[in-house]
């Protein structure tokens, strides 16, 4: 990993160590959560890809049937002018879509919903003289086909958006896993080692100081010892006897109170 030696530029203090530790903790939690989100999305994504596959096949069939019903119209009307007339008489879309949203793990997936506006079709009188029944039937067949197409389109949009989102999420997961966590860990390691180093230095210094002190103390002791042995030899042993007596007297009293 790139971050083997990388660490954040911080002063190795105990406060920063605390910060880093909580940051690591946060990163790990975030990583877990994102990982879970990514899994949920991927699950959804797989489901959608499967459904797209199915829907595409279905569309193939539906469109074929629809195309055939148009052939029936041509047969019944017996003239090619009809198609042109239909193209020209199209005015206002009767078949429209509206967009809904669906929330999948915090991602807004739009879903198209087909609806037909009120009012008559632009083509209701098409084929009045002959072929009108075929035209009506063809209209219905195509309306159904378009519904299938709309369904497929919303799956596909979901696919594109999910694809994008999953990429982003995975990028984040990977970034946390492979950059942020190692770097934070490195920083912690670094701070620790620095702190240890300081500790050791301190310890050595203290040791040095205390060694010095001990030496001074020992020297002073020796000096004092020499003085004492010269001046008052028994004084100390007498003091010790008195103290032990006191202690015994205390215990006796307590017993009485109980």
């Amino acid at each position: 990993m790139s971050g083997a030696e990388a660490r954040e530029a911080v002063f190795p203090t105990r406060q920063v160590l605390g910060q880093m530790k909580s940051k690591l903790k946060g990163a790990q939690t975030g990583h877990d959560l994102l990982k879970r989100k990514s899994e949920a999305l991927t699950k959804r994504f797989r489901e959608i890809t499967r459904r797209i596959d199915e829907a595409k096949r279905k569309m193939g069939r539906v469109m074929q049937i629809a195309a055939f019903s148009l052939a029936e119209v041509t047969y019944a009307v017996g003239s090619g002018a009809l198609t042109y007339q239909i193209q020209e008489s199209a005015k206002s879309a009767k078949f429209r879509v509206r967009t809904k949203q669906e929330n999948v793990s915090g991602v807004m997936l739009p879903a198209f919903e087909a609806f037909q506006t009120e009012g008559g079709s632009d083509f209701q009188l098409t084929g009045l003289g002959k072929g009108g029944q075929q035209v009506a039937r063809c209209r219905e067949t195509y309306a159904r086909a378009v519904e299938t197409l709309v369904e497929l389109a919303s799956l596909q949009t979901a696919f594109v958006i999910l694809d994008e989102v999953i990429k982003v999420v995975n990028r984040r997961v990977n970034a946390i896993e492979h950059v942020i966590i190692p770097r934070t860990e490195n920083t912690i390691k670094y701070i620790n080692s620095e702190l240890d180093e300081l500790d050791r230095e301190e310890f050595y210094r203290l040791k040095k100081v205390s060694g010095k002190k001990e030496r001074d103390a020992a020297a002073a002791e020796v000096e004092r010892e020499a003085k004492k042995s010269n001046a008052q030899g028994d004084f100390e042993s007498q003091m010790e006897d008195e103290e032990s007596k006191d202690l015994l007297a205390d215990e006796g009293e307590e017993d009485v109170i109980f």
């Binding site: 629809a66 195309a67 019903s69 148009l70 009809l82 198609t83 239909i86 193209q87 199209a90 005015k91 206002s92 879309a93 009767k94 078949f95 429209r96 879509v97 509206r98 967009t99 739009p110 037909q116 079709s121 632009d122 083509f123 035209v135 063809c138 209209r139 195509y142 309306a143 086909a145 378009v146 197409l149 709309v150």
Partner: peptide, 28 residues
């Protein structure tokens, strides 16, 4: 970005367009 989107658009051969227009997607 998609609140106002409510139409379908078609680029197709004559028959496909005719059929889809029959379904009522055409808008001018």
């Amino acid at each position: 970005a998609y609140k106002d989107r409510q139409f379908l658009a078609v680029i197709g051969d004559e028959d496909s367009v005719t059929g889809l227009l029959l379904a009522g997607v055409g808008h001018v």
